[in-house]
Design a protein around this nucleic acid. Structure first.
Lengths: 150, 150
DNA sequence: TAAAATAAGGATAAAAATATCCTTATTTAG
DNA sequence: CTAAATAAGGATATTTTTATCCTTATTTTA
């Protein structure tokens, strides 16, 4: 469904939203461990999230790390996907046809249209904050284990 | 959404269903040209479809080629996906968590559940025949151009 | 101001997906 | 029975994705 890059991006962003703040920035080692992702690779992805779309903020140096601004928390999940170049799910034809469109639809087009609309809804209506909040409620998982309530 | 392998598999299968029959088998060159896919690679994929799931039938030699049995035409689209090892969309967690489940759901789980159900519906309720029939109706596309009515 | 901590960024590597090519096996037609 | 046509299958190549490592730049604190 999504690339690993996108998965790591989402998990990292949720984790940062959940545990980090402007005065509690999170280091890449903590993040990667928490979400069970390869550290250096995750660092690259966070670079994308910081510069491509300002989803994540960062500062270097001691006590540096990653965090989310309040504005960033209000961003839709789609912003994360876009930052890592993963918007194809919402735009491309299921059969991979370049010219598939409403006027020249592929044989799965009509059925997929509804699904695509719901995917769009999910990615656009749900914010990073929403996901962090779900996680905070405890019944929810990141990295194959429950995230402790604060 | 789907891998190229899966896209080619679906397009090829639809095309074979549409134009081929037991006494009009289609060659790999015709198929690949028609669906705009790399020939040798498509040949590999058709091999998978013939042996992994008996979705496609084939015979070698002069007048050999690929075709679908009547039984194969009744198979759901999912059979094609399974043959090329593409069932992840229906089974995996959006965030890529191994342990995500109903009892330990990820923060997107509930929203995605509905979508996954619809995807499953689409892939299981729609048969290869259905897709070919849609294509036969003319208003539909394969390979970026209209398929001529017979 | 120096040292330490930390993210940024470049170069490279490894793995997976996609693609090509060549040889072999099978089947048909003559 | 032979030749031609065709898919099957193996070996290899290319591209993309995923991953690692090392150096550089920035920031903080002592």
């Amino acid at each position: 469904m999504l690339s690993k890059s996108a998965e790591y991006a989402l998990r990292a962003t949720i984790y940062i939203a959940l545990k980090g703040s402007e005065d509690n920035k999170l280091g890449i080692d903590e993040i990667a461990t928490a979400i069970d992702s390869p550290q250096s690779f995750t660092a690259k992805i966070l670079q994308l999230l910081t510069k491509n779309n300002n989803v994540v903020s960062s500062v270097r140096g001691p006590n540096g790390g990653f965090y989310l601004t309040d504005a960033a928390r209000k961003l839709p999940v789609r912003a994360v996907l876009e930052a890592v170049g993963e918007n194809g799910v919402l735009t491309k034809c299921v059969l991979g046809l370049k010219e598939c469109s409403e006027t020249r639809p592929c044989p799965m087009h009509e059925q997929y249209r509804t699904i695509k609309a719901q995917l769009r809804q999910m990615f656009e209506k749900t914010t990073i904050h929403d996901l962090a909040e779900e996680t905070r409620k405890g019944k929810i998982v990141i990295n194959n284990r429950l995230v402790k309530k604060k």
